[in-house]
Design a protein around this nucleic acid. Structure first.
Lengths: 92, 92
DNA sequence: ATTCGATTAGTTGTGCTTTGTTCATGAATG
DNA sequence: CATTCATGAACAAAGCACAACTAATCGAAT
């Protein structure tokens, strides 16, 4: 599924008077809200969906896979997602 | 950040004529859309935010953490999230 | 403001998974 | 069209998922 397909799904869920444009704006508002919340608070917990958390990794040794040359991988931060029990149901 | 706080953030982003109720409905529509998309297609790719993917784990041995007794953990599926480079920016 | 059912967090131990490095290329997205 | 993403290579250590069960938290309903 891509963004356009998700927007259609959202439009259907919100009802016939919702335009694609509005559905798209809703999606952007949600993703932006999550992004900002993770950045500000370090986590966004959505019960029944999952929790977005900032994860940190220390600097470590790695390699350039092309040359095999050892190199340093800098410390980094990323966003991880802990899936709720609810979203796991019915997966195939 | 929790759901109520995210709804406020969404309401602000969508504009003053959007009620808390509508913002909440938008959030539910988005989360439902993602949930259904992952279940149906195995992945939901949202450029600039990240990609939700189904992940599978084989059965393995685990323990009852209370008693230490060994037991089998069944094969399972979950939803993992690969953060886009954009969402990683500005994390602290 | 309160209630309470539903969901999540936490506990230990261990083996599997993820991550990130460079860089070229092509595909997909918006 | 500009930007992002996926892919692949080798590698190894950090990180994480899970078990059962109880305590803690959340949030929809009142």
């Amino acid at each position: 599924m891509n963004k356009a397909q998700l927007i259609e799904s959202i439009q259907k869920a919100l009802g016939a008077e919702t335009t694609k444009k509005h559905a798209g704006e809703a999606l952007e508002a949600v993703l932006d809200g999550i992004t900002k919340g993770v950045k500000k608070d370090g986590n966004v917990q959505l019960i029944g969906f999952g929790t977005f958390k900032v994860s940190s990794r220390a600097a470590r040794k790695g390699r350039n896979p092309k040359t095999g040359e050892a190199m340093k991988i800098k410390a980094s931060k990323s966003v991880r997602f802990v899936a709720s029990s609810n979203i796991k149901k019915g997966l195939k």
